[in-house]
Write a protein that binds this DNA or RNA. Sequence first.
DNA 1: GAAGTGGTTCGTGTCATAGT
DNA 2: ACTATGACACGAACCACTTC
Length: 210
Amino acid sequence: MSIQKSVRLTPRDNAILQFITEFGYCTIHHIRRKFVLTIYRAYQVMQRLIKAELVLHQRIFHAESGIYMLTKKGADGTGLRPLPRIPLASYHHHLKVIDLYLTLSEKHPDMHWISERRLRQERYAKWVGKRGHVADAIIEFPESKKIVIEVELSLKSQARLSDILKGYKADFSITEVWYYCPLNVFERLNPFKATMSQLKLYSLDEVIKS
DNA sequence: GAAGTGGTTCGTGTCATAGT
DNA sequence: ACTATGACACGAACCACTTC
């Protein structure tokens, strides 16, 4: 009697695993939107991946969607390790970054998104400055435009913001810095626009809604 | 406490496709 | 050709929380 547990992975399954590993974790709604599935279908697909021990499902907050993350087996071959645990402090911020990714990728299909996880990995690989600020993402366009993406849900100190922006200003490889934030943070960042032409501010709620 | 809500799972059925 | 598995759709039901 043989125990058959083989699960055939479709190209979409692999794409889902790659998508999850890029962000570390995501909700069913991100999966549904990214891969254009109905809610029922999205749950079914994810159930299959859970059964194959490639994906874990965890409920973090009640009355909110659970999250999907990769197991060690699922992360195998993706180039990134599975997330050891969910950092609660940045949980909602993280989900907003994925929403923003989905919105921007629908708007700019030719963009290449480099996630924060990738950026950290590259930084570690180069052995340069393990400390310091890492952008939420960098997007590259075919015409070699390089945009830094920052999502800010809460107010950072003026000094901290100033430091971060100075860093970007000094980096000539960066074409623009796109900041996505709620209105109260918007006000706080506005003065920086005068001294930094590359800085673009967007209302996070409006961009994600659209 | 009941009703409503959101997230999730389960069962069922049909059709398509890959592997042997 | 046969078999296993995946894609897709939908209703029903469960659970825990929120609202009235």
